[in-house]
Design a protein around this nucleic acid. Structure first.
Lengths: 199, 199
DNA sequence: CTGTCAATTGACACTGTGTCAAGTAAGGTG
DNA sequence: CACCTTACTTGACACAGTGTCAATTGACAG
């Protein structure tokens, strides 16, 4: 009974996620999700009040499955600021391909739906905290370039790591995931780290 | 008669542009454009076959008004590669706020409409040529960092200069236009130019 | 006076979201 | 066993926005 309800909810989330991943977030309708979850379109509304709510719930479901929290927090254990920057870029950059489909869908909805826009904004704000922490670590090590305030440096790193940028480089320019991560690490060092060009 | 027809077409384009600029490209319907151009919604379809076509025509109309071509080509006269990089960033970066509304609308349509996606992609490809030219100029001066191939450097510059990045920094982070341009110039130098950190 | 052309008007098809009411099938409880 | 609740189904419908169509109007030109 009540476990039955939970089952169905998960089944819907699973169907939603699979479709969004497969389609890069495009053109997935409530009826498609229903079909894949093997119930009627209307039944979805017994579990989620709107499409936006379903998409948002799908992102949480995804996080749970992929252990997003743990992966991103791993970078906190890095010793030096530079290592932490590298680790955060690797963690987040590695996570993007896994969330790309649902992210794209939520982003598209944000254009018209306030609820979706708020949810998306919150997620990006969470990610920003990771950027902030990495920049702060660099600052504590006295390694942050004098060109930027901590705030501006955070803004820049946050922007560099945006999903849109990953999309452009990976999908439009055809970069491999390794090229993407390596470039970001190299570039971030060149930009932010005093004397830290590396190579 | 025939000049009458042209008049109406321009009136529609003007209305479309004004609404898109004012609304940052969001929620502008055919009926809104019709109202502002003072004709019936259906009459628009006598001049443009679809909404996508109207949006695309609006971008061309905008380019014409703002003299996009000339402004972007001005950077070609710069003497050194570094100057050219600076000039191109300033020219394009300065152009973005003017096209933001219509760009956003076209971008939103690209999610569902193939025609819009193609038109958008073409525009971005044109802009990419400017990036390519700046990177090539740097390369000819033997100033391009050995970290990147010319192709990859172009990809990176192209991505840095994306409208989405401008949007994030300006609108979400609250940067001024001057801060945006200066940061990009400084950062591009740090990334691409051998020995060219500057300040 | 007639033909042409731009535009209007009202109606309608289509897609996708969201709602509602009535009905059904299954399971638990008296 | 009969009864009730719960999850779900079915079919219908409202709504928004795009795009189409046919019939009509008004103006101007030859």
């Amino acid at each position: 009974m009540s476990s039955n309800k939970i089952d169905t909810r998960s089944r819907i989330l699973k169907a939603s996620l699979e479709l969004l991943e497969a389609s890069h977030g495009r053109g997935v309708r409530m009826s498609d999700i229903a079909k894949r979850a093997k119930l009627s379109r209307q039944a979805i509304y017994l579990h989620f009040t709107t499409r936006a709510e379903l998409l948002i719930a799908t992102t949480h479901y995804l996080d749970e499955i992929k252990g997003a929290q743990n992966r991103l927090e791993a970078s906190r254990t890095a010793l030096t600021g530079t290592e932490r920057l590298d680790a955060f870029i690797a963690a987040w950059g590695g996570y993007i391909p896994e969330i790309y489909g649902i992210a794209k869908a939520l982003l598209a909805m944000s254009d018209t739906d306030q609820e979706a826009a708020t949810a998306w904004s919150k997620r990006m704000q969470d990610m920003r905290e990771g950027c902030q922490a990495a920049i702060d670590a660099l600052y504590r090590d006295k390694k942050l370039s004098a060109n930027y305030s901590r705030e501006h440096a955070t803004d820049i790193l946050w922007t560099m790591l945006s999903i849109r940028n990953w999309e452009q480089l990976s999908i439009e320019c055809g970069w491999t995931q390794k090229q993407y991560i390596t470039m970001l690490q190299t570039t971030a060092r060149r930009i932010f780290v005093v004397d830290g060009a590396g190579i």
